[in-house]
């Protein structure tokens, strides 16, 4: 048997050392830091040079979870992310449909402008916006943070749905018109379900990225509006107790983990790849 005649047989019979190597490297790069953080979250005493902590325990969980500011921050984060995602969807999805299906003057320039907000160093942009917000009395308000975070979701929520809408076969929509559906009905019954999985992935990504967004939330929201990531940073900055940060990190993983599980189910049929123009 030569590799030329039966490449598939070779793959199964001979051990794939290259694959194993990459798997190990990836595990080290991705999993080890996660493992360290999780370990820290359940550690009470861990002194150098010991490899494993001297004392495990849930003391810091207790100390973290009894704090009112943690629960406030979590509640604010969820409200913020939900509001931003909803607004972003309301604004961006019709816009994405327009970009995908309609021809209007300046279409390409408009389209690129969404990318432009990501082409600048973000912090510079944020400071400039913060100066404007200061005049508008939006600093340290809920809606100020909503607005700033909305800006950073625009690209994701425009570009992926545009690709999703463009991937919908025009003739499917025409066939629906043909059997008697109004344009609105076509959008609702044909276009949206066809583009659905990809759009759902975009919505999910928007929610998660908003949930973890720190720079904007910190610059515009502090000190009144403290989101979970901002709170975590302040913990790490103010007290050199690693466990607080670690516990919060583990708590913060929960929503993204749920989101990713959802995304996996929805996106398994290749909708996500479509979203990126594949």
């Amino acid at each position: 048997m030569t590799s030329r005649s039966a490449p598939f047989a070779i793959r199964s019979s001979r051990f794939d050392w290259t694959g194993l190597f990459f798997a190990i490297v990836l595990t080290i790069v991705i999993a080890v830091p996660l493992l360290v953080v999780v370990t820290w979250a359940f550690t009470e005493v861990w002194r150098y040079p010991s490899v494993i902590p001297q004392q495990f325990g849930l003391r810091y969980w207790q100390q973290t979870l009894v704090r009112a500011d943690v629960w406030d921050a979590l509640w604010i984060s969820i409200r913020l992310s939900a509001t931003v995602t909803l607004l972003s969807a309301i604004i961006c999805l019709p816009a994405a449909y327009a970009f995908a299906r309609m021809k209007f003057p300046g279409r390409d320039i408009f389209f690129l402008s969404f990318l432009a907000s990501h082409a600048f160093p973000k912090f510079g942009l944020l400071v400039a916006i913060a100066a404007i917000f200061l005049k508008l009395d939006l600093i340290a308000t809920f809606w100020g943070v909503v607005l700033i975070q909305l800006v950073s979701t625009l690209m994701l929520m425009i570009w992926i749905p545009v690709a999703a809408f463009q991937a919908v076969d025009r003739r499917m929509e025409e066939a629906a018109r043909d059997v008697g559906a109004s344009p609105l009905r076509v959008f609702w019954s044909i276009t949206l379900p066809q583009a659905g999985p990809t759009i759902f992935a975009a919505v999910l990504l928007t929610f998660v990225s908003t949930f973890y967004e720190t720079e904007g939330a910190w610059l515009i929201g502090a000190p009144q509006i403290r989101t979970m990531p901002v709170l975590m940073i302040s913990y790490i900055n103010n007290q050199i107790v690693v466990q607080y940060g670690a516990v919060l990190s583990v708590i913060l993983w929960v929503p993204s983990f749920i989101a990713l599980m959802f995304a996996r189910r929805v996106v398994s049929n290749g909708g996500f790849a479509k979203g990126f123009g594949a």
Partner: peptide, 11 residues
Amino acid sequence: MMFQSHALWSH
């Protein structure tokens, strides 16, 4: 109308 690419709704 019957289209060249059948245009059935795959969902």
